[in-house]
Design a binder for these strands. Structure first.
Lengths: 239, 239
DNA sequence: GATGATTTGTACGTATGTATA
DNA sequence: ATATACATACGTACAAATCAT
């Protein structure tokens, strides 16, 4: 019995993993643009000229416009009729509000995860955490980042609430340009790890309130770190 | 001194109020389709034929496709490459998860509102609530619905967090097709009002926890009401 | 403030992938 | 399984709005 090839998966804006089907041009362009924005290659405020970008990507304006529309829905760009889309540049106040919501969403994830993660999910989270310890020892910020994402994603998934995962990931991506971690102080790295440790313990204990509280303060700490950098063009912190 | 005409407002997917500028065809079509889905004129699972709808709306397929893409981003329709978009039909489980998140989002709004609503905002909320009492006396379900929306919206706004308002409204809209209130039992109407009353008191007292708790159970009550109706093709409850 | 240049919005035809006989 | 029918994906041309001078 062979598993279905599962072609033509889904076209959701949030999950782009898996599914090796041929992507539409719009999807390809959307992914590239989203990555460029999240990675900071396109700075907030920068206008996106349709003709120019379409040409540089080797596609017509039609799929490019669809991609831009998706990015607008994700909040990565802002569009106004008859005007060029621009990379979103939220006000400091709006950014603070988003961080606040992010903290609450992640706290809710952690709380639910503490209540309902399966044994294998818990083990997986522990494994990721141990990997982070390893990376910390070797002081390797770039690898820390990717595993850090996995740590948080594992907790999201542990909430067993697909919609919560969806909006939490969406919020995280939207905040990405403002917590980029190109260069990371070792101090923050170690602190982040310790905070993760407290979160992990709370979740493994099944202590919902503690899980929520430790996660919330973890995220808000990140916001504080960002605030310190406010004004710099490339603020850089990793959750 | 005359105020600016404010042309070319914004193209955000969430706020469509105000702004009397000439809309693009894509915007017009998007609004119409979104309303039809939210109001249940287009049932979950129904396919959206581009050619057919474009013709019926008197536009070409180009703006229609952009509208559909926006609806997909809002979660109102689901799209897969080379296949017709269909009106979203979430599984009962997914629906439950969304209600759960909705309860938490509204609870957070209520909590923040209790902490930071201004005096005039509180007075406005009271006025809306009194209006609901009036409508209840006259037993007028249809008017109850619109004022009920205002009651909740006023609390969202009272959170003073634009991003929270955005995702809460988006979630609310996404759930709209599944809590439509065409015909409302008077029993539910009166119960809803009593719950509102408890929420209002908690907010006016500035009691964050109580505001959150009363709001959360208010929303979850609605979900329960929905569950009772599950299986019917047009479940109908009003928050 | 008017006019030309530039850019976005829309229509439509063709290519491509999907579903069905 | 192959072919046929059909709906969507994309490219191109033109209209309309914005902006730059």
């Amino acid at each position: 019995m062979k598993t279905r090839p599962s072609r033509g998966e889904d076209n959701s804006l949030i999950k782009e993993a898996g599914s090796r089907r041929k992507l539409t041009r719009a999807e390809e362009v959307r992914t590239r643009l989203a990555d460029d924005i999240v990675d900071g290659k396109l700075s907030p405020g920068m206008p996106l000229d349709e003709t120019e970008i379409a040409a540089s990507y080797g596609v017509s304006r039609t799929p490019l416009r669809e991609a831009i529309r998706d990015l607008a829905a994700m909040g990565l760009v802002e569009t106004r009729p008859h005007r060029s889309a621009i990379v979103t540049r939220p006000s400091p106040e709006h950014l603070r509000q988003m961080f606040h919501v992010m903290a609450e969403l992640e706290a809710l994830c952690a709380s639910l995860a503490a209540a309902s993660m399966t044994l294998s999910e818990r083990r997986n989270l522990e494994t990721i955490h141990e990997g982070l310890a390893q990376i910390l020892k070797e002081n390797d910020p770039s690898h820390y980042h990717v595993l850090n994402e996995k740590f948080h994603a594992a907790i999201y998934a542990g909430s067993h609430n697909a919609y919560l995962v969806e909006i939490t990931l969406a919020t995280r991506r939207r905040l990405s340009p403002f917590r980029r971690a190109q260069f990371l102080t070792t101090g923050r790295l170690a602190k982040s790890y310790k905070e993760h440790d407290a979160i992990l313990v709370a979740i493994l204990q099944g202590n919902r309130e503690l899980a929520a509280d430790t996660m919330r303060s973890h995220i808000l700490t990140v916001e504080d770190s960002y605030e310190e950098y406010a004004g710099l063009k490339a603020p850089s912190v990793s959750l």
